[in-house]
Amino acid sequence: MKFTVVILGAPYSSAASYSAYRFCRALLEQGHQLARLFFYADGVHNGSALTCPPQDELDLQQAWRQLITKHQLDAVVCIAAALRRGVLDAAERDRYAKPADNLACEFNLSGLGQLIEACATCDRTVTFGA
């Protein structure tokens, strides 16, 4: 089955991101397809490359990045939600003349159309953090 997974929760604030991560890992292990990860609302914070959790805790963003790389997943961070929350790639940093960018290279900033397109073409859309 082909899934789209939507993540609305920031890492550490709620269980949404970790639950979504475990769900994605499980569905891939069972041979399902993951058409797209869509990080929306507070979920955009999962795309930050600057998080520094304590060393004896799970590094959730690192775990996401490894999963995305391992399975060559399409990981989209909603651009409008990201700009509001200060998650920027180099292009947006330049556009808004900000001092830094922080989007990890495994993620892409894009619009809500990516969510709708994935939703229209997959079998199931599963949301975490609503």
């Binding site: 609305l8 609302a41 507070d42 409008a80 619009g111 809500l112 709708i116 397109e117 609503a130």
Partner: peptide, 28 residues
């Protein structure tokens, strides 16, 4: 597509985010 929106309008961003997703779906 059915969009379920279960949060109050100003307590979190989710109500507006849901509405934006609905508008995006209509645009597509």
């Amino acid at each position: 597509i059915v969009c379920i929106s279960r949060h109050s309008p100003y307590g979190s961003s989710l109500a507006r985010d849901a509405l934006d997703a609905v508008l995006a779906a209509a645009a597509f």
